[in-house]
Simulated assay, not measured.
Amino acid sequence: MTAFVSTAVATPPRRGLMFVLSSPSGAGKTTMSRRLLVDDEQIVMSVSVTTRPPRPGEIDGRDYHFVTEAEFDRMQAAGELLEWAKVFGYKYGTPSARVQDALHAGRDVLFDIDWQGTQQLQQTESGSDLVRVFILPPSMAELERRLRSRGTDSEPVIAHRMRRAATEISHWGEYDYILINDDPDVCLHEIRAILKAERLARRRQLGLAAFVRDMLG
């Protein structure tokens, strides 16, 4: 009887990446983020700190870390935030320590942030770990329809979100990938494809040189 010899190969370790999804409100980034997290165990959500009060159903530490304005300002001054921005009167920011721990452990970190936060991440991290994806609506008319279908915003708020959307969309050229969210299932498939390709990028394969050396030696 011939003994079975396993040919399984240990996957070389890799460094995690910071995967940014940005879009104007109503274009789908939050929905895409939630769906991606459900079926991908290699990626974790970056939980932001914010000065805004919790909304019904939100849990501190899961949805956001809810802090006072004074605590937010202290974190900012101490350099504990990778990025921060003021949106609709409230401050939002990304704590640095947990993100760096995840990256070093080979896990990816998902960011649901706007163009301002993305610019700051680019400057802070020099782009080495950053993958930027911008999600566009199929049209401005469809974006307004989606905002109205929520049934949660007043007419002035919707008008403000539409004005802000135009500003946000004008920054599309700063992103690595641009997707049009006409069909959510197709858009999610494209996001997964981008994530898979970026994970396989040579610069992220930390153990690849040693793996090839051992294979040839």
Results as ranks from 00 to 15, higher is better:
residue 42 Q to S: 15
residue 116 Q to H: 04
residue 2 T to D: 15
residue 61 G to A: 04
residue 45 M to K: 15
residue 92 Y to H: 07
residue 60 D to V: 06
residue 128 S to R: 10
residue 19 F to E: 04
residue 53 P to F: 09
residue 143 L to N: 04
residue 25 S to M: 03
residue 125 E to P: 02
residue 115 W to Q: 00
residue 5 V to G: 07
residue 136 L to C: 04
residue 35 R to M: 08
residue 78 A to I: 12
residue 46 S to K: 14
residue 36 L to C: 06
residue 187 C to A: 11
residue 215 M to F: 15
residue 84 W to I: 06
residue 56 P to N: 00
residue 163 R to N: 11
residue 217 G to P: 05
residue 146 R to V: 04
residue 141 A to G: 12
residue 110 L to K: 01
residue 147 L to M: 02
residue 59 I to F: 10
residue 122 Q to W: 06
residue 47 V to L: 14
residue 182 D to E: 13
residue 147 L to C: 03
residue 29 K to Y: 02
residue 110 L to S: 09
residue 83 E to F: 09
residue 82 L to N: 07
residue 215 M to P: 03
residue 213 R to D: 10
residue 151 G to D: 01
residue 78 A to W: 11
residue 52 R to Q: 07
residue 85 A to D: 14
residue 168 E to S: 14
residue 53 P to Q: 14
residue 154 S to A: 00
residue 180 I to G: 05
residue 22 S to D: 08
residue 211 F to M: 11
residue 204 R to G: 04
residue 121 L to C: 07
residue 180 I to W: 12
residue 166 A to K: 01
residue 204 R to N: 08
residue 5 V to Y: 02
residue 180 I to L: 07
residue 41 E to T: 10
residue 200 L to P: 03
residue 104 H to S: 04
residue 90 Y to D: 13
residue 11 T to P: 01
residue 109 V to C: 10
residue 144 E to V: 09
residue 171 H to Q: 15
residue 203 R to V: 06
residue 175 Y to D: 11
residue 38 V to M: 14
residue 132 R to T: 10
residue 7 T to H: 09
residue 40 D to V: 14
residue 113 I to D: 01
residue 112 D to A: 09
residue 21 L to R: 00
residue 4 F to Y: 08
residue 41 E to G: 13
residue 83 E to K: 14
residue 1 M to T: 08
residue 131 V to T: 00
residue 63 D to W: 02
residue 8 A to Y: 11
residue 176 D to W: 08
residue 79 G to S: 01
residue 31 T to E: 09
residue 13 P to Y: 04
residue 102 A to Y: 13
